[in-house]
């Protein structure tokens, strides 16, 4: 989803010897560890029941497959560090596909268009976003703090849902989340959040007969 063609710019550009993909290696190791844990769980639960029509064949097959694939992935990350997936694709050889074609005409003026079109509500980096942040160097231009904060806000939201009620929790979360995502217009956010939460609450509880927690507000 939403993989805007220009974020794939790396495909068309010659592959520079990027630093070793440590993130991918850690991921591979985590995948392998989780796979082994799940395989062990399935193996223990099966207790020797490997009959093909029994309930434990599928878990064992799936988790074994997981372990094999995670190993394949992990080994791939160590073999040729400058490529994401050396065993299968040589990204430097990708011909200028449709995306690349579109991009070539795209870059100069979109960057310009974006600068003057930059919205006051969003924090933005410099105009270097034509450089890919996804293919080889996932670390470039990626910030870990906003997603972490959004996750924390979500956690707070769902935990508040029952005790505080849908309307209040949603409105609070909405404003907080918009703020994390770069909004600096408190009043506008509140003006959207409160009617939205109330409208959804009444629409669902009265219109669709779906129960939502009322919480502390006398609704």
């Amino acid at each position: 989803m939403s993989s805007e063609p220009e974020t794939r710019a790396g495909v068309a550009e010659p592959v520079a010897p990027a630093p070793a993909p440590w993130g991918a290696r850690v991921l591979g190791a985590v995948l392998l560890a989780v796979g082994l844990f799940l395989l062990w769980t399935a193996y223990r639960a099966a207790g020797g029941d490997y009959s093909a029509s029994g309930p434990w064949l599928a878990p064992l097959v799936v988790t074994t497959g997981w372990v094999v694939l995670a190993t394949w992935y992990l080994v791939g990350q160590f073999r040729t560090p400058h490529r994401v997936e050396p065993a299968i694709l040589a990204e430097s050889h990708t011909p200028p596909g449709p995306e690349a074609a579109a991009r070539q005409n795209d870059e100069p003026d979109t960057a310009a268009a974006r600068k003057d079109g930059s919205n006051a509500t969003e924090t933005r980096n410099d105009g270097s976003d034509a450089v890919d942040g996804r293919d080889d160097e996932p670390a470039a231009e990626v910030r870990a703090l906003p997603p972490a904060l959004v996750s924390a806000a979500l956690l707070g939201y769902v935990l508040l849902l029952a005790p505080v009620g849908f309307v209040l929790a949603s409105a609070l979360f909405f404003v907080a989340c918009a703020r994390i995502l770069g909004s600096r217009a408190w009043l506008r956010d509140i003006a959207v959040a409160v009617p939205l939460a109330l409208g959804v609450y009444y629409g669902f509880t009265r219109g669709l007969d779906i129960t939502l927690p009322a919480g502390v507000l006398p609704l």
């Binding site: 956690l155 939201y157 935990l159 404003v175 995502l181 770069g182 909004s183």
Partner: peptide, 29 residues
């Protein structure tokens, strides 16, 4: 629609969707 509002709204509706479908905080988690 400004992006922060849009994505905050998507998250509210996503939470609402799962909660309405399962009636369980654990499922939302």
């Amino acid at each position: 629609i400004p992006r922060p509002i849009l994505y905050a709204g998507i998250l509210v509706f996503a939470t609402l969707g799962v909660y309405a479908a399962t009636n369980s905080v654990t499922q939302v988690l």
